[in-house]
Design a protein around this nucleic acid. Sequence first.
DNA 1: TATTGTTATACTCTATAACTATA
DNA 2: TATAGTTATAGAGTATAACAATA
Lengths: 168, 168
Amino acid sequence: MSYANDMTDRQSPPVTGTPAASDGPGPVDHEAPVLAAELRLSLMRAVRRIRAEKADLDLSDGQLSVLAVLHARGALTNRELADFEHVRPPSMTRTVACLEERGLVERAGHPQDGRQVLVSATEAGRAMALDTRRRREAWLARQLEQLDPAERELLARAGTVLRRIADA
Amino acid sequence: MSYANDMTDRQSPPVTGTPAASDGPGPVDHEAPVLAAELRLSLMRAVRRIRAEKADLDLSDGQLSVLAVLHARGALTNRELADFEHVRPPSMTRTVACLEERGLVERAGHPQDGRQVLVSATEAGRAMALDTRRRREAWLARQLEQLDPAERELLARAGTVLRRIADA
DNA sequence: TATTGTTATACTCTATAACTATA
DNA sequence: TATAGTTATAGAGTATAACAATA
């Protein structure tokens, strides 16, 4: 698995660069390049930790991801799923076949286009997708509960900024 | 590849829950469970986007991760590398052998313990690890430059909180 | 005897190429 | 003819089991 290059490095704490508006409770650098280096590592580590929380059902990452996509967006064709997961159609065919065997997804012909196949999550599939998501949210919520309210507010606002960046 | 279950879901914007200290520029919820749900998705999406930036050298995620670890922490034994990457020793043997063939790492006997093998990155290996890291930092820095200073400061502080959470 | 590393072997996931069916 | 899906086959990556060398 190797959960993708974490690029673990720079175990040293944040370094104060240009002393801009340094009024907060710690030395933080707001210059883009230095902040980028620190932030990238913080984000990757946090996500790595969140990802470690998963249901102990033996579903591969790809299978779990497909279930989550179907759970969120409803029925999709094999091609749409493949594009969404950045995987080739034959690979998705196999993944979907595996999920179907386990009763986690269903295949149905497309009403208009006879070539296409609509894949949708079954109730069991949706439950499984929800289970892992809830475990991760629960872990994160436990961590957030240990912060003070100002820190939670800080993270809430940071989240909206991060989403804007990621969706750019 | 499938870059691990993104658990893409809930495309709706943040929902205001308990109206705590809602003085900021947007509706944000500071209650732990709701914040956890929103933040998890924001973090995963941001990291997914950052990960998309990588050197186009054909190195697998696992190989790249090993190079990054060696670059950050110096020489490590096969066992240490395997534990660090959450992979079994035979798998790491194979990964290291592949990197060695390409001149990116070197193997040397352990000075004290004749059983162990010390793996270290070569200059080429370090350069390759740096390259991907710099691409990701550069992409993130470009995004950060488009924010206003207050938002950068926000992210800088959020980063320190996230690191504290992840390392807990 | 326990531990480190390796080799042998098998399984999973993904890819490309070729084939079928439909538009 | 172009496209959606599948099948056949091969290539990475990882796992377990068995073996060699050292502590």
